[in-house]
Design a protein around this nucleic acid. Structure first.
Lengths: 221, 221
DNA sequence: ACCTGAACACCGTTCAAGT
DNA sequence: ACCTGAACACCGTTCAAGT
């Protein structure tokens, strides 16, 4: 490609620009017209690249999950360590790209990269010894706590922190007043709750996995 | 009021009609024009009762939390039982009114009735022996798991079940295929995850509460 | 092939006008 | 006092027309 040659855009250009904008201004502020402005074209140019806004949102979600898969690298360590790793990277992804929380609540369709993450958790659970209904139940527990507690921290982005601050102030209790004075201690509290919740789930999985293994050994022995 | 006299509407009329519609068709389908149709007036009539759509959404949320407070009744039993009670009623509220999940993600402002529920949890935690930073951390853990795991089950309402069904099918694993065959077993799995998560949190609170009590006794003794 | 400009249906909201 | 009808700004989307 000769220099100075005006290269046309790619779908990825739209995706990265949209993510950057939504992270700062919130997903609600991301209109088709704004995207046009941001990439330097007209409002309607995007329809050459995406069928509709939902398809763009799906591509944004896939892009961010791809980023997470890259950070994750190849699975190593014990099953528990692998799930812990996923929990950490999941959290990091949402912290770096808060628009993800709104994307997930707005979007429903399962897609390749999110399914890949799901499968990693399922693999780890299988290696812990879960199968059949115990496997799906365990997976659901991990997903609910992992995504649930992350969602609740960030769904109002980019106003989630001030909102939570206001909620804490509304409790009208000295301990909550103390913490509502600076946003960073609110973030700490959220982080603390996440880490504790994940640890509780993993401890529980360790216990039930050995129980299931013992039950199977007893049946077949 | 004489019979046959045409009584004018109340704000509550709009609220109940809006909730009923959003529960069935989803919050996204609830437009100002639809509300007008449903109450039997014009699109713009609602502005005599609410400043804007956000105020209506807030009133819907408050109405549903009021319903929950009524179901809860006066607090009785041990602190743990009281939190369990709240967890059960919270779940029931969302099951009966799935629009609540979307209301929460869309709305941010803290309001009277939701704060009342918060305060009940805080009271119970204080009676368990938590104070200061341990109190806010404990509360945050309860809230994250309680609301988080509920949100994640229902945020796509009224399509949340078919969506999850499709996600399970996408995993392409025999155990997930089995469960994705009927929607009721998906609901069971969600319910199971919720109950387990709450139990894990409450067990953890029981442990840390006695630890904190012991630490205080040690310091002051 | 890639982009623009005008247009359309739909949304939340305002406001003057009706009873 | 309560409601209507027409209008406005904004949204996602379509499509004929430009290069």
């Amino acid at each position: 490609m000769p220099p100075g040659r005006k290269k046309s855009l790619t779908p990825e250009d739209f995706v990265t620009v949209a993510i950057a904008y939504a992270d700062v201004h919130g997903l609600a502020a991301l209109t088709i017209r704004v995207i046009g402005d941001e990439v330097g074209l007209t409002q309607t140019a995007i329809y050459r690249y995406f069928h509709d806004k939902d398809e763009l949102a799906g591509a944004m979600k896939e892009y961010l999950f791809a980023e997470m898969l890259t950070s994750l690298g190849e699975p190593t360590g014990t099953p528990r360590e692998r799930i812990e790793r996923i929990a950490v990277e999941f959290r990091r992804l949402f912290a770096q790209h808060p628009c993800m929380a709104n994307l997930i609540t707005v979007l429903s369709s399962p897609m390749d990269n999110s399914t890949a993450v799901t499968r990693r958790v399922v693999d780890a659970l299988e290696q812990m010894g879960f199968s059949g209904r115990a496997l799906t139940d365990s997976y659901q527990l991990v997903e609910s706590v992992l995504i649930g507690t992350t969602l609740i921290d960030l769904y109002g982005s980019p106003y989630h922190l001030t909102t939570r601050l206001e909620r804490f102030r509304n409790v009208r209790h000295p301990a909550f007043d103390d913490i509502s004075r600076d946003p960073s201690s609110i973030e700490e509290t959220n982080e603390q709750a996440y880490v504790t919740a994940i640890r509780l789930v993993l401890d529980h999985l360790d216990r039930t996995a050995t129980e299931q293994a013992r039950a199977i050994a007893h049946t077949s022995g």
